[in-house]
Design a protein around this nucleic acid. Structure first.
Lengths: 122, 122
DNA sequence: TATGTTAACTTGCTTTTTGCAAGCCACGCA
DNA sequence: TGCGTGGCTTGCAAAAAGCAAGTTAACATA
């Protein structure tokens, strides 16, 4: 009886044909793109490292987001150590192809929101 | 006693210094960028026209999003007719500067989500 | 052998946000 | 006088977010 039963692309029906509307069904929330940011630029590849990001995402939300991103093929989860099992999360090519969008959002935020930082490394 | 009391940038405290995290506090949800899309490319400038978009945004959500976007200066609301009062919504320069991000998301969705359309006009 | 620690989640519960349907109001029109 | 229209608002149920605490398996230490 898993409680986290996000099923991803199988039997998902998009609400519209618009590519933007579709993309937002996957990444349209306050947290998902921060996970992508941390995987892309900040070297945070474990559950714990992601949890410790500045924004302090709740652990159940993080678990759900990682599962969603994985189910859509943007992230891959690999066992990097057995006994005890330890996992790493990495962007797939599909996930990495989100980089220009992230850069665009960062630039917009930097230009329009007071004091926002502009630096992928921060 | 207004129920919709979104207060916008005044006394808003961002959860982090990251420009991406900040931007997502404003546009990080499933609907806001669709409003921006409709204002940017689809010639939908009234409440009703926005309501009738393919994705069928609930009217209270639309009202809240328009108020949020307006309070942050991304959208301007103007009375284009008195008796009865009729309003138009238009992007400001700040709102229009979101175009590259929208194009990026559209392209990503088009390339990665089955059958998504790639055309600002659609 | 018992005790503690760590990573990676999971659970329970409260609060907030969404979503849906219906309602409201001012006016213009027939 | 009733009907239609635009621009919302309201009420309520359902879903998602957020918080704190708990769980599990495997070392590490004493």
């Amino acid at each position: 009886m898993p409680t986290l039963l996000y099923d991803g692309p199988k039997n998902h029906t998009f609400r519209s044909r618009c590519s933007i509307a579709r993309a937002l069904e996957i990444v349209g929330d306050k947290w998902t793109l921060l996970v992508v940011r941390d995987l892309m630029w900040h070297g945070r590849h474990t559950f714990k490292a992601l949890q410790e990001s500045e924004e302090r995402m709740p652990s159940n939300t993080l678990a759900e987001r990682l599962q969603r991103l994985t189910s859509w093929g943007l992230v891959q989860r690999t066992l990097y150590q057995e006994n005890p099992a330890r996992y790493e999360y990495h962007l797939t090519d599909e996930g990495r192809s989100f980089e220009p969008v992230l850069l665009g959002i960062m630039q917009w935020g930097h230009e329009n929101l007071e004091g926002g930082l502009f630096d992928p490394k921060i």
